[in-house]
């Protein structure tokens, strides 16, 4: 049944293609809870690769090049020239992936450097990519420069096994509650945070609810004889 359309070879081919600018982070097989052979619906043979926008190369366009080069200059002067892992430009938004050990000097430069002046941090958000081995946890920072009217995004990754990221509270005090929330929901530990405690969930709550391995919860609902399972156990298209 799967002759000639072996899903694994397709993926390898997609991976090897140099034109694929995206970054494959995971692969889903099957649909509606059906996987593998033995099912005649054909859903078992479906394969979907999750491919995030990959690294961009300059020129990024407009002011983004200015920010990138100003940041590179300032970082070199501060001795953290390798801070930026990669730059992703997607849908007119620029994302700088920052090595976590260099995060603190970089945010300080971004806030204080005259050409950068990102004086406003809109917050920190966690994202959990369970299949992105070694980079499961992402912390995403949205910075705004009111002086230059620009927005950038910083992304810092940490593995599940070592979920530590330095706290930017000293530079952006507003990150206080945002980091507490990311800790509460993802288990990200922000080193140097003044009081990293849970903020939304009760203090004695077990687990970190926004992680992908944390179930949504819910109970089956019975209606007119039929039983509908909770949303996270229903058949889905994903």
């Amino acid at each position: 049944m799967t002759d000639g359309q072996d899903p694994s070879t397709d993926v390898v081919a997609a991976d090897a293609a140099p034109v694929a600018a995206g970054e494959v982070i995971s692969r889903h097989e099957g649909m509606f809870g059906v996987s593998g052979t033995g099912d005649t619906s054909g859903f078992g043979g479906l394969v979907r690769t999750v491919e995030l926008p990959g690294a961009s190369t300059p020129p990024y366009g407009g002011w983004m090049d200015d920010v990138a080069s100003d940041l590179a200059t300032a970082a070199a002067a501060a001795g953290v020239e390798n801070a930026v892992e990669k730059v992703v430009v997607h849908r007119d938004e620029i994302t700088f992936f920052i090595r976590r050990e260099d995060l603190l000097p970089v945010v300080k430069l971004l806030r204080d450097d005259e050409k950068l002046r990102f004086e406003f941090c809109a917050g920190v958000n966690g994202v959990h990519y369970p299949d992105d081995a070694g980079r499961e946890l992402h912390a995403v920072y949205h910075l705004l420069s009111m002086t230059h009217n620009r927005r950038i995004r910083l992304e810092v990754t940490a593995p599940d096994a070592d979920p530590h990221i330095p706290s930017v509270c000293a530079t952006y005090p507003t990150a206080d509650w945002h980091e507490r929330e990311a800790f509460d929901f993802f288990g990200l530990i922000f080193d140097g945070h003044p009081a990293l405690t849970r903020i939304q969930m009760p203090d004695d709550w077990p687990g970190h609810p926004q992680r992908k391995d944390y179930p949504l919860g819910g109970i089956p609902v019975e209606y007119k004889g039929a039983t509908i399972p909770p949303p996270d156990q229903r058949r889905s298209y994903n």
């Binding site: 995206g22 979907r48 999750v50 491919e51 995030l52 849908r91 938004e93 809109a122 949205h142 298209y237």
Partner: peptide, 28 residues
Amino acid sequence: AGQAYVPIESPRGELGAHVVSDGGTRPF
């Protein structure tokens, strides 16, 4: 797949949704 952040001026200030997609039919 990708992420977007489009903040707007709500009555209380900057309100923004950081939307992350993995290319599926549901928000990631």
